[in-house]
């Protein structure tokens, strides 16, 4: 059991570290191929918060289109252009 717990801890942390490193590369424009790339795509919270900071990663198209119209003013014009 002791060994099992050690292995679980090790895999959980080091697996997460690898995931985050790949995610950082993906968010810096290094596109990883195919399904691996989509697995490591950037921050995609289901719905953007109401207090989004300037420069935050844009939510995916689906969630933006489903947000109420009054949310749009928070998006910068360049962001809208990108989404369009």
């Amino acid at each position: 059991m002791e060994i099992l717990l050690e292995v679980i801890s090790f895999i959980a942390i080091f697996g997460s570290v690898v995931f985050v490193i790949l995610k950082i590369f993906q968010n810096n424009g290094f596109n990883l191929p195919g399904p691996i790339g989509s697995a490591f795509s950037g921050f995609t919270a289901g719905e953007a918060g109401p207090d989004g900071a300037p420069g935050e990663t844009a939510p995916d198209n689906a969630s933006v289109l489903s947000t109420p119209p009054d949310r749009f003013y928070r998006l910068r014009p360049t962001r809208l252009k990108t989404i369009a």
Binding site: L5, I8, F19, V20, I24, F43, T44
Partner: peptide, 30 residues
């Protein structure tokens, strides 16, 4: 013993949808 294991589970569940800065801090903190 149990709380770090729960934290690992939460960390893994949040890998896809959480900002890298939050994940980094959680990993390092743990």
């Amino acid at each position: 013993l149990t709380l770090p294991l729960i934290m690992y589970a939460v960390l893994i569940c949040g890998l896809k949808k959480t900002r890298s800065m939050h994940l980094t801090w959680l990993i390092i903190y743990l």
